[in-house]
Design a binder for these strands. Structure first.
Length: 621
RNA sequence: GCCGAGGUAGCUCAGUGGUAGAGCAGCCGAUUCGUAAUCGGCAGGUCGCGGGUUCAAGUCCCGCCCUCGGCUCCA
């Protein structure tokens, strides 16, 4: 039997040996760092036997597969701890997540923070015991019997869902046994630091008609340093939360008296929105779009014709009666753009026609899913509909792809994840149209060399779509852009509200100069410099910059602190020295001393900081 | 919608049945100061909304509204 390693070296060994012993026979030290192995592309336990020629790759925590095994074993350790502390809790499922794990238990009451402490202490004890983790295979019948005897009814239900001939694997550590596909760490002692984070309710199998289970989230890492880094990242995410920053910087508010999911844009937030919208309009006109406007309500019949009443009713506000007709608050802009298109006869020579609108729509979302600016009930889509011939679809989609990457890149987003979503269960239109539209989208993606994944069945009822997720400064992915075929429907920023929420978090409120609501604050040291400061501000404003004076009788330290907290990109400090020499002492955001310069020099500095849009500031401040 | 935690001054929060508090912000006064908080004083409340228990409710009970975490990652 021939075993090949990643580095290409290979060796003959007798069949039937375990992966672990083969690796050590090949001269690799089996340190606790090696968690599992990949054999011919499949992740397996180190204890699994090798039966045929194989390529073997040892897995450590530094690989995604290695981490998955590590976290999966961690959640088993937590489950064992829960069973030891609360024997009446029933096991359900417990997968690894990207940076941790969870396990759902059926239990008579929610777990309290005190419970978590006890469970965590027990889990640490289980790690200390370094129990060997053993795999066993049972027939379906035996597996059902085994878990039935232990009162694990959810496990029995899971096994009943598995196919009949299949051998069913269970993993044991000490007295604890769980139904599990594996693979797992060799012992519970392979886990380093272990921490439980929070609890939550979760439906059995994710279905709200099913019983509510008690979920516990946790995470684990080989070292305390890595755990600390992870916790610091969670803190950073909290610090940048757009709901917190949006309030601190007085950008937006969502008020109970107005209604959930309905956003007020305060002057500073509105300034940024205006800049975004102006940029959007200019770019669309330059790229061959015609801009349109449409009303916020329309006869319900329009929404019946469009299919929204049949396919989208759950997300619509209730209709209202006006005179003798029913009217509907709009959940989408498409029917209006189609009506503009249909307002007179079009020749194929007129195509493509591209209608764009910053169209505000209203959708009913259940209160439990609302989330700051990222999930709201009233929002403005940067919407457009492209009417084109079948032979133009591919090139139009290609252009939209390029345009999307340009627009998003202008706001500092340069990493993307692209998904192609295909025909869902509930849909309108023939199979042929779906196939045609889907292949046009795919051809455009391939033509632009864009890497993408398929999201089967996730298309909209009227057509397939390309979704583009942007990655922010902390590496998180957010869904904004969508491009949908049949009539090509696209939104690049998605909704201005969501996009703004993401922008706030991406920059942590420290917007690049072209978007900053206040670009420079000119501050006096004493009352002596007031006329000079006022004159400088007048000059800055005349040059088109958003500048403010801070003439208060306060110490310069306080003025700087407040400008820092407001994330103003530039502070121009003026004392008697500057008045004498006709200069400004310039301080960048976060304390950079940029020296002294004249007003003309300061204007050059501001201009130079405007381009390339969105990419000139460090995102780590 | 469901499970859990919350809602007290503009903001952040303390307040375990007995006279509603602090810090910051605000206002008034003093201070004229060189790169992240000058000092002093004053004012500020339907304790989310509605009902109930009690001599007495921010606090206990019931209903509702809203916010936050989760319900998407699946042996």
């Amino acid at each position: 039997m021939k075993i090949t390693l990643k580095n290409g070296s290979s060796r003959d060994v007798p069949a039937g040996q375990s992966v672990g012993s083969v690796l050590s026979a090949l001269g690799l030290t089996i340190s606790p760092d090696i968690l599992a192995a990949k054999v011919n592309g499949q992740t397996v336990d180190l204890s699994s036997a090798l039966a045929e020629d194989a390529e073997v790759i040892p897995l450590q925590f530094d690989s995604a597969e290695g981490r998955e095994v590590y976290r999966h074993s961690s959640t088993h350790i937590m489950a064992q701890a829960v069973k030891e502390v609360f024997p009446t809790a029933q096991l359900t499922i417990g997968p690894a997540l990207e940076d941790g794990f969870f396990y759902d238990f059926a239990f008579e009451r929610p777990f309290t923070p005190e419970d978590l402490e006890k469970i965590e202490a027990r889990a640490k004890d289980i790690i200390k015991r370094a129990l060997p983790v053993k795999r066993a295979e049972l027939s379906k019948q035996d597996a059902i019997k085994f878990f039935q005897e232990r009162g694990e009814t959810y496990k029995v239900e899971l096994i009943q869902g598995l196919s009949d001939g299949q051998a069913i694997s269970v993993y044991s550590q000490g007295e604890f046994t769980d139904l599990c596909r594996g693979p797992h760490l060799p012992t519970t002692g392979h886990v380093g630091v272990f921490k439980l984070l929070n609890t939550a309710g979760a439906y059995w199998r994710g279905d709200e008609r099913n019983p509510m289970l008690q979920r516990i989230y946790g995470t684990s890492f080989p070292t305390q340093t890595e755990l600390d880094a992870h916790l610091a990242r969670l803190e950073e995410i909290k610090r940048r939360d757009h709901r917190k920053v949006g309030k601190e910087l007085d950008l937006i508010s969502i008020q109970d008296d107005i209604g959930p999911g309905l956003v007020l844009w305060h002057p500073k937030g509105a300034t940024i929105r205006l800049l975004i919208e102006n940029f959007w309009r200019d770019q669309h006109i330059q790229n061959g779009y015609e801009l349109v406007y449409s009303p916020h309500v329309a006869r319900l019949d329009l929404w019946k014709t469009s299919g929204h009443v049949d396919y989208y009713r759950d997300n619509m506000f209730a209709s209202m009666k006006v005179e003798n007709s029913e009217y509907q608050l709009k959940p989408m802009n498409c029917p209006f753009h189609i009506m503009i298109y249909k307002s007179h006869l079009r020749s194929y020579r007129d195509l493509p026609i591209r209608y764009g609108e910053l169209g505000t729509v209203y959708r009913y979302e259940r209160t439990g899913v609302l989330h700051g600016l990222l999930r709201v009930r009233g929002f403005t889509q940067d919407d457009a509909h492209l009417f084109c011939r079948v032979d133009q679809i591919e090139s139009e989609v290609s252009q939209v792809l390029d345009f999307t990457f340009f627009i998003l890149g202008s706001f500092g987003f340069t990493e993307f994840e692209v998904y192609l979503s295909t025909k869902p269960e509930k849909s309108v239109g023939s199979e042929e149209r779906w196939a045609q539209a889907t292949s046009a989208l795919e051809a455009a993606l391939k033509g632009r060399g864009v890497a993408y994944q398929i999201d089967p069945g996730e298309g909209v009822f009227y057509g397939p779509k390309i979704d583009i997720k942007i990655k922010d400064a902390l590496g998180r992915s957010w869904q904004c852009s969508t491009i949908q075929a049949i009539m090509i429907h696209r939104a690049l920023m998605g909704s201005i509200e969501r996009f703004f929420g993401i922008l706030i978090e991406h920059f942590g409120g420290a917007f690049p100069t072209w978007l900053a609501p206040v670009q420079a604050t000119v501050m006096s040291i004493t009352d002596n410099q007031r006329p000079y400061v006022a004159d400088v501000v007048t000059q800055l404003k005349a040059a088109g910059f958003r500048a403010e004076a801070d003439l208060r009788n306060e110490k310069i330290g306080l003025k700087i602190r407040e400008a820092e907290k407001a994330k103003v990109p530039f502070m121009f400090v003026v004392g008697d020295r500057e008045v004498q020499s006709g200069t400004l002492a310039i301080r960048g955001r976060s304390g950079a001393n940029l020296g002294s310069m004249t007003v003309a020099g300061a204007l050059d500095l501001l201009r130079a900081d405007l381009k390339p849009a969105g990419q000139q500031h460090s995102l780590t401040q």
